[in-house]
Design a protein around this nucleic acid. Structure first.
Lengths: 330, 330
DNA sequence: CTGTTAGCGCTTTCAG
DNA sequence: CTGAAAGCGCTAACAG
């Protein structure tokens, strides 16, 4: 591989000049810049990212921390979209993302993890699906060692940003749409997610807003994001329920299956907009979160923080959609 | 962060000695080694991986190249297991894996990609799902610039290894089991995968072996790993078929759905062992490939190659299983 | 605007 | 067995 030295020699300039050109710094005459670019071209030179990182002390490396649960197809889809979004955007921004699994770290102490990440020259962390009370993350964030972007949890400070959609409003919207589209929807069963999840609470607030506004009879139960549990809860509460509002598509599928088995109809709505939903064999309203874009935004936000910006709460928008059967093609 | 210098000073030795201890080289007395280790301990020192990489010219970095197709839940599951396996093993081996998507590279020329990877100090590549005639990979591999591990394709040379299960035998086994467990299975519809996929041909050889041995009437059709196509093919051929042997679980699901819709029974068997299979609502035999382990093996193999070993063909084993309904939990 | 120079933290000869 | 010293390829003052 050609090095910056070769380029400098070829262009007849000093390596610092080449460096300036490479990094787009001012203070290089057009003619010199041109000659350098020519030399770069001719030598097919690409700067060595590792050397640049060591020298500048800036690696542009972000750890992408996934909290993989037991292999579940729906979650796989979401996680993989998160990953794809992050990797694509990172590539565009010339950053490195190092994918890690939470399970690889959680049994270690904060100090050890901080050490590991610093040894890897990781400057930023992107965390998905943080839980309400998560001492591990809290400690890591509060160590102040890393720029952190938290996806789907409202945690931000000087060097931490949060990125998510307005869960409360989204839940309100999708439920409202579903209820207004159908007759006789006074009695709502709200199948919420896991209690320890931040989004769960936001979404509950959304359905509560709606219940207050439309004077609905609201029953909140917890399905823990499980299809099976949602199915069971649906059987259990069918008699006293008009409409089933679910905090995830997977649970909505569970609810719809139960209804199909009982051979009764009630409107159901979901949340997320996963492709797997098609398996319910019906249509339903849902909130389409663009995980790819959310994740891309998280990477951008990480870059912003690494550039010295202050943390903030970044709220992205969402879409209400009616999902139909989708063929699953491999 | 403490540096090697701090450790050296604290232990009262030279940094080169510390380096030797860090890398487990011989030629350090026990007493010195001990003192160094103490100092490391006390300073909570972890060597800077970037500096080590720059200095030694060995980054231990592997690009993990996923060929994501249009988001399909079943593939998501497989890809994520591949990814998880690779990342875990890499962490254990103290390697870095950089996840990349094929789609990010395929529109670039080989030279450009080689350059990019080298700039990132990537020494090894792990490729999944290479196709039969893939000029891009062929060129990349033949550039000889990287140690390559090819998963699920029989491509190996001096610095390329292939890792996979014996697809031919696995297909033979699972079909044999299914046929022997059931009566009247003389007429076999084999729903193969994509023609451009290596595994497709191996699996076809497997079913051919069996057809020859048991004197079956074999009809091979191509379902392209698509559930929908398998479903259509099943409708089309039901009359003249006794047993449906599918080259993937997803296609097996498609076949089973068609049979359920026609309200007829025929044995069906699949391939892969994905969890999604439960959605068929029935049981079926399948080949369980442990994607996690395959991927871990691929990473190990990459390390072996980077250590100077020669490429080889590594064949892992598999399991025949009868999959049942699995709850999908988020 | 351009070039010189001193590192970044570690590895790796090579003398002692 | 131990230590001094020369880089790895690049960045970033700092002189000119």
């Amino acid at each position: 591989m050609a090095s910056i030295k070769d380029v400098a020699r070829r262009a007849g300039v000093a390596i610092s000049t080449v460096s300036k050109v490479l990094n787009g710094y001012a203070g290089v005459s057009d003619r010199t810049r041109e000659r350098v670019n020519e030399a770069i071209e001719e030598l097919n030179f690409t700067p060595n990212a590792i050397a640049a990182a060591l020298s500048s002390g800036k690696s542009g490396r972000v750890a992408f921390l996934l909290n993989l649960e037991e292999g579940t197809a729906a979650v796989d889809e979401i996680d993989l979209q998160y990953l794809a979004g992050a990797i694509h955007r990172a590539r565009e921004l010339n950053m490195d993302v190092i994918t890690l699994f939470f399970s690889m770290l959680k049994d270690k102490g904060t100090a050890e993890v901080v050490n590991y990440l610093k040894a890897q020259s990781i400057e930023g962390i992107i965390v998905y699906g943080m839980e309400r009370e998560d001492p591990f993350w809290k400690a890591l964030i509060e160590s102040g060692e890393f720029k952190t972007v938290v996806v789907d949890a409202p945690f931000f400070d000087r060097n931490t940003s949060s990125v998510w959609i307005d869960q409360r409003k989204a839940q309100y919207d999708v439920a409202r749409k579903t209820i207004l589209e159908n007759e006789n929807c006074r009695r709502v069963l709200y199948i919420a997610g896991r209690k320890d999840s931040y989004v769960t609470w936001e979404r509950i607030r959304g359905i509560r807003d709606l219940a207050g506004e439309l004077d609905l009879e609201l029953n909140v139960v917890y399905g823990d994001f499980s299809e099976r549990k949602a199915r069971e809860l649906t059987f259990l509460h069918e008699k006293e329920t008009d409409v089933f509002v679910c905090a995830s598509d997977l649970m909505a599928i569970g609810a719809m299956r139960a209804l199909m088995e009982m051979d009764v109809f009630h409107p159901v709505c979901g949340f997320d907009g996963i492709a797997l939903m098609g398996y319910a064999g019906k249509q339903m309203n849902t909130v389409r979160q663009d995980f790819f874009r959310i994740s891309a935004a998280a990477v951008e936000e990480a870059e912003r923080l690494m550039g010295g910006a202050e943390g903030r709460n970044l709220v992205l928008d969402y879409e209400l959609v009616r999902m139909k059967y989708q063929d699953i093609i491999r």
